[in-house]
């Protein structure tokens, strides 16, 4: 079943009042919603808060039949999540923050001990990955692309690489990183 077919089926069942379909919808898309919100906000706790509000609105609108093209459910969820995040930022900018307000602010967990340890582990795995890369060129390529955020085309030009080759280097690095990560961190995550 394609994504469009699955979406259509879910929406139709929700419109018929099938509550298990609502549960299935949240389960199907929530991981992606959390990832996109975390990516956009850089704040794990905020992403979780916004996702709750997103689901409340998505459910309300789908039940009410506001989604005209049922196959576009995922795009609809993305747009709703973006709107909620935008509203959050607008309200936080237009309102004077008092001490009481600050107490209610969500806290980014990135400085918590668990996250610091995770970063340390990450750094170890990454160092091993970098040392394993076969050629200095591959190491430089990874650094320039990820850290210097240089354009893929200009890197390819400098090393006289095809884009296909470049993508292979990135893909291999990611796959090897995954192996090292599992090896190093194992079941701790």
């Amino acid at each position: 079943m394609t994504e469009a077919q699955a979406a259509e089926s879910l929406v139709e069942r929700i419109l018929k009042g099938d509550q298990t379909a609502e549960q299935e919808m949240v389960e199907r898309y929530n991981r992606g919603v959390l990832f996109m919100l975390r990516h956009r906000s850089k704040n794990r706790a905020l992403a979780e808060d916004i996702s709750q509000e997103t689901w409340r609105i998505v459910l309300q609108k789908v039940r009410a039949g506001d989604l005209k093209d049922h196959s576009k459910l995922s795009a609809f969820i993305v747009q709703t999540a973006k709107n909620q995040l935008l509203m959050h930022y607008r309200s936080s900018h237009q309102t004077k923050v008092t001490l009481d307000d600050k107490a209610d602010e969500t806290v980014d967990m990135s400085d918590q001990p668990q996250q610091v340890l995770e970063k340390y582990n990450l750094a170890q795995v990454v160092k091993k990955l970098v040392s394993e890369l076969k050629t200095p060129r591959d190491r430089e390529l990874i650094m320039r692309f990820y850290l210097q955020e240089e354009d893929k085309q200009s890197i390819c030009q400098d090393y006289q690489l095809s884009e296909l080759h470049f993508n292979r280097v990135l893909f291999r690095a990611r796959q090897r990183f995954k192996e090292l990560w599992v090896e190093h961190i194992g079941e701790h995550r």
């Binding site: 990454v126 160092k127 690095a173 990611r174």
Partner: peptide, 11 residues
């Protein structure tokens, strides 16, 4: 990929 990127930056 996000973890790799974060790890590279942290390292």
């Amino acid at each position: 990929a996000e973890r790799l990127l974060e790890g590279l930056r942290f390292a």
